[in-house]
Design a binder for these strands. Structure first.
Length: 215
DNA sequence: CAAATTCCCTGCTAGC
DNA sequence: TGCTAGCAGGGAATTT
């Protein structure tokens, strides 16, 4: 989230549980309120973050482009930005497990641990498959499902797993559409096989051992 | 150089 | 009942 201030830009990354609330007048006492922006008209914008994982950076506007370049942030998960050829070429050069590679934000922006598991289930690709071993068809499926899953997640207002809400305090509903995340021990909706979970790159990883073969 | 691992923070849950 | 250990997650820092 970018705030264009007078002479500076404030970059605020909410991570999983950062939230902003705006109060016209009285600001309620809240345990996890950390940052208060007071406006001249009496309103207050409050940043809350239960686990203090969010980050904020203040920099000069002319450094903004360089900032994003240094992060090596990939394209937006949209058809017009996320180029399949570029994606396939990058995968062909990498020995990383596909899940770890999708999570690092360089191929495409926006995939976190929940949605990467959902994308790989939909594309029927095992999370530990090495990037360079994927077929053109598999890469294409991952590309298409990334756009589909993130598009749907935005439409549903995100996934409320713990405390996530939007700025109006409303829960998202994307969790109702999860096929593998947090469904360990339950039947795969496609084939009935029991969903399993293991650690990959330090992340809990959910998958269907029948639909997503190691190959 | 690329890939793997560690760490940050707090709240919740499982196990004793 | 109350305690602790383990887990969750994005990404920077550190190690392999």
């Amino acid at each position: 989230m970018l705030f264009y201030l007078t002479g500076k830009v404030l970059i605020s990354h909410l991570r999983m549980e950062g939230k902003y609330f705006y109060y016209l007048d009285q600001v309620p006492e809240r345990k996890h309120a950390h940052i208060f922006f007071q406006f001249e008209d009496g309103g207050t914008l409050v940043y809350e973050d239960v686990r203090k994982f969010g980050t904020m950076e203040l920099l000069a506007p002319d450094l903004l482009d360089a900032y994003f370049i240094s992060k090596k942030l990939g394209p937006e998960p949209k058809d017009q930005d996320f180029d399949l050829q570029v994606f396939q070429a990058a995968l062909a050069k990498s020995k990383k497990p596909i899940k770890s590679h999708l999570l690092d934000q360089t191929l495409v922006a926006g995939l976190g641990n929940i949605y990467v598991d959902e994308v790989l289930w939909r594309a029927q690709v095992h999370p530990a498959r090495l990037s360079q071993t994927l077929t053109a068809e598999e890469a294409s499926a991952i590309h298409d499902q990334t756009i589909a899953v993130l598009g749907q997640a935005v439409e549903k207002g995100g996934s409320t797993i713990r405390t996530y809400t939007n700025a109006f305090g409303e829960d998202g509903t994307m969790q109702d559409f999860h096929q593998v995340y947090d469904r360990t021990g339950q039947a795969c909706s496609r084939c009935g096989t029991v969903i399993e979970k293991f650690q990959l790159g330090g992340r809990g990883t959910h998958f269907c051992p029948q639909c997503q073969r190691r190959g």
